[in-house]
């Protein structure tokens, strides 16, 4: 009996495909894309001011409130601005390490460096934020260290400056890995050719290496930008400022206003959609 069933399945390729595809496609179609659809629709619902019950009629009220109330504009611009700063900082920090891995390191060193970059990526996000909170705090290691070299009284936590520092630290591996992969794909003969044709190392770097590795940088920036945009834990822990995520979280939790939270969550979705379209144009998807 088992044999006949297996033979039947083996002969019908479309049945095999169906059996393989239905569980994952069903899960992502219903649970995930379905949830995104609910989020989208919920953004157009509203909260009854008297009963605090959700009214399931479509209205633009949440979006009106987002546009007219200056507070939300400040929060949105702060979030997007800091995400941009973090992305630029991470490119600058990632480049030398990625370049060393791809061009100078011997295979063994390269393998060790690879694991050293990978480990922080996977080790507890929260613990690493917490570590920075301790380091930047009053009386912490950074203030002590700066006092030793004659710069006393620098406590960065809690402040807006702490946010980009911590984010740059947390998401750095996401930038190193794609840049490294991009640099490794450049054939060494290309750089030699540039040198043979009379270009100095600086010129080769600017006119050959940078243009070739640019899609990989954009690929890395998708992660640093998106992850910063969608975070709200770090701002709470190291500053007194709010990110989009803080407003979303507090709206659905403390205030019980799921429709407004859903509407504000549309802002990062929209920003990321635009970002991905531009990134695709720049060839980032081929560099992932």
């Amino acid at each position: 009996m088992r044999g006949r069933l297996l033979a039947f399945i083996y002969r019908h390729r479309s049945l095999q495909l169906l059996l393989l595809l239905v569980p994952p496609a069903g899960w992502f179609g219903v649970v995930y894309l379905g949830s995104l659809a609910v989020l989208f629709v919920a953004a157009f619902w509203s909260l009854d001011p008297l009963t605090s019950a959700i009214r399931h009629e479509l209205t633009l009220r949440n979006f009106q409130q987002l546009v007219t109330d200056g507070v939300y504009r400040v929060v949105a611009l702060r979030t997007i601005g800091i995400a941009a700063i973090v992305t630029v900082t991470d490119v600058l920090l990632a480049f030398p390490l990625a370049y060393y891995m791809a061009r100078y390191a011997r295979p063994r060193t390269r393998a060790i460096l690879f694991v050293l970059v990978l480990l922080p990526l996977w080790s507890s996000y929260l613990v690493r934020v917490y570590a920075w909170r301790v380091i930047l705090a009053q009386g912490g290691p950074l203030e002590w260290g700066l006092a030793q070299v004659g710069i006393p009284g620098v406590a960065i936590y809690p402040s807006d400056l702490a946010i980009p520092i911590v984010f740059s630290y947390i998401w750095l591996p996401y930038m190193i890995l794609p840049i490294y992969a991009g640099l490794e794909r450049i054939p060494g003969s290309l750089l030699e050719a540039s040198g043979d044709l009379g270009a100095r190392p600086g010129t080769t770097f600017r006119r050959v290496v940078l243009p070739l590795v640019f899609p990989a940088v954009v690929a890395g920036s998708i992660f640093t930008f998106s992850l910063t945009l969608g975070d709200y834990i770090t701002p709470v822990l190291v500053s007194n400022s709010q990110f989009i995520g803080n407003v979303v979280f507090d709206s659905q939790g403390v205030a019980g206003n799921v429709p407004f939270a859903a509407a504000f969550a549309m802002v990062p979705v929209l920003v990321m959609a635009l970002y991905l379209i531009v990134a695709r144009r720049l060839g980032a998807f081929d560099a992932l």
Binding site: F223, D231, G245
Partner: peptide
């Protein structure tokens, strides 16, 4: 790839 609050808020 989507911001964490989006996945969280959608669910």
């Amino acid at each position: 790839a989507l911001p964490g609050i989006v996945t969280g808020m959608a669910l």
